[in-house]
Design a protein around this nucleic acid. Structure first.
Lengths: 117, 117
DNA sequence: TTATCATATGAATAACAATTCATAAGTTAT
DNA sequence: ATAACTTATGAATTGTTATTCATATGATAA
């Protein structure tokens, strides 16, 4: 009976920790939205491509293999969530990954592919 | 004229890299699906809660603040994508995060919240 | 200024996913 | 075997998101 008692206490401790450390609704929502932005195949391809360095829209369109309009919409989504940033250079707009955290995510994700769990 | 030439070559190099290093359609699709699994607020909450340690469904239901059926559906989604795993203990089913990569992701995500870029 | 090239956007349809409700299934205790 | 408890699931509705098409905007060159 003592062991189950102990286990029960551990469970209580964990749920307490889970409830206390839970970020606010708003923070969770924003975080989820950012994950969602990454979670469509073509947007993920854009990020995978950008992990090689900055690229213009035309090249990104080649990289994802879609059409220009779709890619622009996808870029907007990523930009709105501050996952990528851009700068204009003449006629072209050149996109790049916004910060190190995102790059880390993409790297971890790539690793995941390679070791397959 | 020499500088733009050099830049152009760099661009070509990058798009070449992007195209060559792009994972297969299937791999990208699976990766995207896994990100998507993480990207709903209540599923993200489940993962944030589980980052404190394993929890049973009832406690997880408390942690996300939803109803039991919804949480079970969400758990199934996460489990189907091998983001969480579970074991039965008596009447209860106890869930935990499936592997280190996922934990890393959640940690990076949490950091992201704290430093806000 | 007009023509051309590169990118962005609004609106609509089409595809997809989340939540709910009712109920089933597995586990333990009586 | 039945009841009580915990978790899972199917089906339907509702809500969301992606893609497409047509067109607009912004930049450069002629």
């Amino acid at each position: 009976m003592k062991d189950t008692q102990k286990e029960k206490l551990e469970h209580e401790e964990r749920i307490r920790c889970a409830l206390e450390s839970m970020p606010s609704e708003d923070d969770v929502a924003e975080l989820a939205a950012r994950f969602k932005a990454i979670s469509e195949p073509s947007r993920l391809k854009i990020l995978l491509a950008l992990s090689c360095g900055e690229l213009c829209v035309e090249h990104l369109t080649q990289a994802v293999g879609g059409n220009q309009s779709a890619v622009s919409h996808q870029l907007k989504t990523l930009k709105d969530h501050r996952i990528i940033k851009c700068r204009r250079q003449g006629k072209q707009v050149i996109y790049s990954i916004a910060d190190g955290h995102i790059l880390t995510m993409i790297s971890v994700a790539k690793e995941h592919l390679n070791c397959n769990e």
